[in-house]
Design a protein around this nucleic acid. Sequence first.
DNA 1: AGGTACGCCTCTT
DNA 2: GGCGTACCT
Length: 556
Amino acid sequence: MGIPNLLRFLKPFIEPVHIKKYAGKRVGIDAYSWLHKGAYACSMELFTDPRSTAARRYISYFMHHINLLRHYKVVPVVVFDGGSMPCKAATDNERQRRRELSLNMAKEKLEQGNTAAAVDLFRKAVHITPLMAYQLIKILRSENVEFVVAPYEADAQLAYLTTLNADQGGIAAVITEDSDLIAYCCPAIIFKMDRFGNGEEFTMERTLNTEKHALSFRDFDQQLFTGMCVLAGCDFLPSISGIGTKRAYSIISKYKDINSVISNLKLDKRYSVPDDYDVSLWKTLAVFNHARVYDGKSKSLKHLKPLDKQYLTYLDGDLEILGPDLSPSIARGIAEGHLNPITMKAFDQCSRIFSPNGFLDTSAFDIAEQYGSQEISTQKSCITILSSQESKENMIVGEISSDGQKCKKGVLSLGKFLLQKQSPQVESDEVEPKNVPENNPFKKRKLATDKGQEMGPNELVIDLEDEISDLSCPALSQGSNLTSKNMKQLDFGQEDYEEPSLLVNEVPVAICSSLTRYSMPNKTAPKRQKAPKRSMDKTNKKVNNSGGILKFFTRL
DNA sequence: AGGTACGCCTCTT
DNA sequence: GGCGTACCT
């Protein structure tokens, strides 16, 4: 729950900000906050029909915000929560119980035909499961959005990333709704960011160095600041009854030493301080300082900050409360989104088979799933789905050269393939075309060879203006939602922003598109190195020529 | 004045 | 998770 009232208490130090302030910077995102908000848009569907498009609206919500950041040249780094901390088990269980209660009531109401009441209850029952996070991860992966799954608390992971330089994977700020990040002394945090990029900014620097409303943290160091937060009550340790943010502040600024604070609290008859409160407080401070995080460089767990003797003595060798240690391979599997951080099992058995290629992995798996296949295998450059139902033969549905530089008919046939399955009217000879037609949307642009553009090896670029109207792949032309005409024009302050139509409501575009980076209708291929500027093309359409607005789709 | 317990909201148009 | 509010100390 964060620290109660902390945001209100620190309001004087919080200023309005627009995300464009962080243009060119890497910014960390607490995935949970957007996932949770997004899940509200589809809370009922998540229970009643989890595989439906409607149930995936939380992904649209999330990706809208990702695209917004990219539009303002902010590099998003998405951080997911991992395993739960042992010390939070009690509160976790309580929440779980409440949700289950709501869920049962919701189902009841639904059966009674009271949809309105059911929706209300489903909303109370929503929680973000690792599987939901995994669905998003698959999209992020295909859209080349950087992400990491924290071994435990995303907050700690985010705080850790702020201590690194950008070239080491570090971030300049964090977008979250959780005030816990303040307790981690995160240097810059953006709260309440809306869909236009407006939010409220907290900076440690401003807070420590300015006086507002008779509040001053000039004499506070990091330990005292975190101590104040913990004293006011946090997830790991409830506050002493009668102490909130203000009293925590005044008592810390009075004694300026954690141990003095505790001993004086114990002397004060107004408060009942548990005997072991000092130990608990130091242990909690240890978590905020040394929680276990994932280190992308060594690909293993490490501590947020190097272990400090002062805290270690209170921990008494019990490092478990910082999050149990994990072997590097498990930690990496979790961090890279292959293992469920709770169960430690692979999200899908095939993800690792594909990851060496790093290419069609999840999409291929999606297809297999759709076909009810039991197995998928990759052999050299082919992706094969072992079909268990329709035909007993193995079908080669994709073909990629081993260096990932060429994408042949496979991708197209993939699209056709699915299309045929879902739209019987498609001519059968289109199912496995011998050649990729000249005008096919998946034709590969010359990559990398073009004037220093920095394309990922697996990216395809489609020039929409040229090709959208004349697509050989009906799935795509049908998705005329791709034209700028059908894009929603949203007002983002002074600039117009063409929001990609998020979900293609019809069909198989999914598979193709997860590999595809569409460029907007400017003739030149995207340039991604220079600091891009927006420009107007002849048709007076506003376009983004900095790599195109990213399109994404999800499968049905 | 400050803390706490409680109920309501987070999406979308 | 946050927020606002009525009520308690």
